[in-house]
Simulated scan of single mutants.
Amino acid sequence: MPPRACRSPSSGPGRAAAELSFRLQRLRWRLDVQVFANGSWQDAGSQFFAVSSTGRCAVVLQAPGRAGIQARVRTDYLYGQSGDTVNASVYGSWTYVYFSN
């Protein structure tokens, strides 16, 4: 997104206008995936995904031709890695998924 110009609320006829240029930070969430195998949850990977301007992100998980997979997913917002150094890290709760035919 290109930088946008803003005017101070006090600008108007006979007043100096303060203009600022800024770039909106591109925030992103990390998706963690684990699968249940050999009696415990095993890490299946993590990846960052961009958040849209509406604060949403859609990810499709697929396991073509495979059934019986037990998985769990969660999203994380990580300080310094998700796009800023202002917000604290947040770890979402696990959502459980079962792949079947």
Rank of each mutant, 00 (worst) to 15 (best):
R28G: 13
G65I: 02
F49R: 08
V60M: 06
A88N: 15
G65C: 01
R56I: 13
A18S: 09
S89V: 04
L27Y: 02
T54E: 13
A88K: 15
G12D: 07
E19C: 11
G80D: 12
R15H: 09
S53D: 10
Y77M: 03
R30W: 00
N38D: 11
R30Y: 03
T85F: 01
C57S: 14
N38L: 12
V60P: 05
P3T: 03
A88G: 15
S100C: 12
E19K: 12
P3E: 04
A88Y: 14
V90T: 04
P3W: 04
Q42C: 01
P2C: 13
G39Y: 07
R56V: 10
A18F: 14
S52A: 12
Y77D: 06
L20A: 15
S8I: 06
G14E: 13
Y96M: 00
T54W: 10
R74T: 00
V90L: 07
A88E: 11
S53W: 06
Q47N: 15
S93A: 07
P64Y: 09
D43M: 01
Q34E: 04
F22V: 06
Y79G: 14
R7V: 15
F36G: 07
F22A: 07
A67Y: 00
W41Q: 04
S93W: 02
Q25G: 14
P3R: 06
G55W: 09
G68E: 02
V60W: 01
G80H: 11
S8W: 06
C6I: 12
S100Q: 13
V60F: 02
A18C: 13
Q42R: 01
S53N: 04
